[in-house]
Each structure stands twice: as C-alpha cells, then as structure tokens.
Amino acid sequence: MASAAEGAGAPLVLLVHGGAGDVADEGVPRKLEGVRRAAQAGYEVLRGGGAALDAAVAAVHVMEDDDAFNAGYGSVLNVDGEVEMDALVMDGKTLNAGAVGVIPDVRHPIDAARLVMECAPHVLLVGEAAKRFAVARGVEAAPPGALVTPRAQAALRQAVERGDYTMHDTGGSTVGAVAIDSRGHLASATSTGGTSGKMVGRVGDTPLVGCGGYADDTVGTVSTTGHGESIIKTNLAHSIIVLMRQGLSAQDATQRALDELGRRLNNTAGAITLSNKGDVGVAFISKRMSWAYRKGNEMHYGIDPDQHCVEIVQEKEN
C-alpha cells in the first residue's frame, strides 16, 4: 500500500553511491548489497513523509557502518595509521550546509556535519575541535582504533610499499546520498575516510561545499566521489549544477562535468545527481562506481560501466 507521501504524487527518489575507483571483482557483491540496503533505508524515510535531509543521512549511516565502504568504520588510514574523516550535508531549500574535516573517532561523521549545520554559526569545523563539538551534542564517539579495519591497514602498507599515496580506493571510496522528498525539497550528504596514506591533516573535497556535494531546490542536488584534489580544482558538484541551470539534463550535466575533469586533469571521479523534478544522473570515469536508487517500486543499481539492473520491490503488508 502506498504511503501518504507517495499518494501525493511527489517524485520520491533516494540515490546513493558507494565510491568511484578500482573495485576488485571480489568486492563487487558486498558493494552492490550495501548500496541497495542504503537506498532502501533512505527511501523508507521518504515513504514515511520524512525530509530529504533525514533520508540522505539515514542512507549514509548504513554505509558508514559497513566496512565495505571508505566512510566511518572502514575508513582508510593516513600516513600515521590513523582515521581522519570528512563529511558534508546540504539542504536545498535553505542552502544551509555543515561539514567536518579530519575528524577522528566518531561513529557517524555525517551526524557531526549535520550538527555543524544546525548548531554552529559556521559551515566547517575540523579535527579534535570538531569531535568535541559533536560529541558534546550527542554524536557517538568511538574508542581510539575502533574504526580501523584490517583492509585499511593492508591498503596503507601497499601505499607505503608503492611509494604512491595518490590512490583513492581500497575497494571503496567516498559514500554519498541525494534525495527529493514529498515537498519537492532536495538534500545531499557525503562522507569519506579520504585517501589511503594521505598526509596527516589533509582535507579532501568531501567537506567543501560545491566540491563534495551541493543541493539547491531550484535546480538539483549532487554528491561526488573520486580523486579529491581534482574534484576540488574543478568544483565538480557545483559545475554539474551550473550545467543543469543552463538546461542540461541531470545525466548529461553529470557526464559532461566528469569528462571535463578527466580531460583537464587526467584523473578519475564519479557523481550522482537528481534534478528538482526527480530526474536521475549517474556517471563515472573510473573503472567502477557502485550506485543504487529507489524510485517508486523499482530499485535500480550497478557498478560497472553501462550496467543498469532493475528489481521490483515487493513491499511487506502492514
């Protein structure tokens, strides 16, 4: 049975990504399962009449708790073997945004970012100060080392052995979600552990408005993933919004902005986009990017180029 929100005819959509990068074959099943679970969790919030921001954050929670992804538990490590995370939320109705950078030892950095948006006079807080601010307001802390996984430790060893700290993927990169709710409002939420072997204190693209994400009810909403420094240089999320404002579809704007990044900087990235009409854009110029979205009774998902699977979701009767 349709919820009240669906019955109103609003184009409810919850779209997620689980990171662009060189995902190994053995990691594909967990990636696809994870993004489908995240999309479903966020969509349930929308079906219940919830706000786009609540739905996007709920979807990101699922991936922050899943060590198949590089966010929260499972985050990659800096050169000293520590977890330092970045996150961003943005509300398309108000253009309010909140972000944290290089935040250590919290279970859900996306919650810390939201608290900055709602409780601070600033957009971005970083480091231990960001953690203190968030934990004092109820964000769950994690004991030192609790977010470190064997996979992340192995990735750091490989980076040290290679002498190459530019890789942004260990089977999963930045995670993100975008949503449109029953009132037509948009939101974006993005979370990451960054790049394996990064310098201590490195802030990537994710917490920077217009780079890691953007949301504007008059146009659309975006979450990005990939080589962070290249995303910063091209202001990727906002570049997609600008192209949509010029009349391109969500899909065409996303692909064109990514192609330009690849052409100018010879690096890889991906992005997910929703227009304010609920049109979907999914594109990446990396080897793979896991993604999924729920729209109506359909779950769409993929990870390889040109892969687009569709499942009909059978809702349980109350």
Rank of each mutant, 00 (worst) to 15 (best):
I312Q: 14
N78Y: 03
G213M: 01
D54F: 04
L243P: 00
L53G: 10
R132T: 13
L248K: 05
S3Q: 09
A68R: 01
Y301V: 02
Y43N: 03
G262L: 09
L124H: 12
G278I: 11
S196R: 10
A2S: 14
V57C: 02
M1H: 09
G212D: 09
A292S: 01
A8W: 05
G27D: 14
A146N: 06
G201R: 02
G163C: 13
D111T: 06
A58K: 15
G98L: 13
I241V: 08
G145M: 08
D181C: 07
Q246W: 08
E315V: 10
T206D: 04
V280M: 08
G49T: 13
L14D: 00
G145P: 00
N78Q: 01
V35H: 13
P121E: 12
A113G: 01
G226V: 05
I240S: 11
S182H: 15
E118S: 14
V83I: 09
H168V: 15
M90D: 07
T195H: 08
E140Y: 00
A55N: 04
S230N: 07
T149M: 10
A250V: 08
L53V: 03
V35Y: 15
K31C: 14
H227M: 04
A8I: 01
A250H: 13
D86S: 09
M244N: 03
A142Q: 11
A24R: 12
K316C: 10
R294S: 03
V200N: 07
G184Y: 13
F133E: 12
S188I: 01
A142E: 09
A120M: 07
L115F: 02
G302C: 10
D65Q: 15
D252W: 00
A269D: 14
P11C: 08
G228H: 03
V106C: 05
L115M: 08
V102M: 10
H227T: 12
P29W: 10
V148T: 11
T221W: 06
Q40Y: 09
R162A: 13
K93Y: 06
S75E: 10
D67V: 12
A68V: 06
S182R: 15
E140C: 01
D217A: 08
N235H: 14
G50Q: 02
G176K: 11
V282I: 05
V200E: 13
A68L: 02
V62K: 07
Y43I: 04
T206P: 01
G296V: 11
E82V: 02
G184I: 08
I285Y: 01
A271L: 04
L14R: 08
A179N: 04
V242F: 01
A292Q: 05
V57T: 11
D25Y: 04
G193E: 03
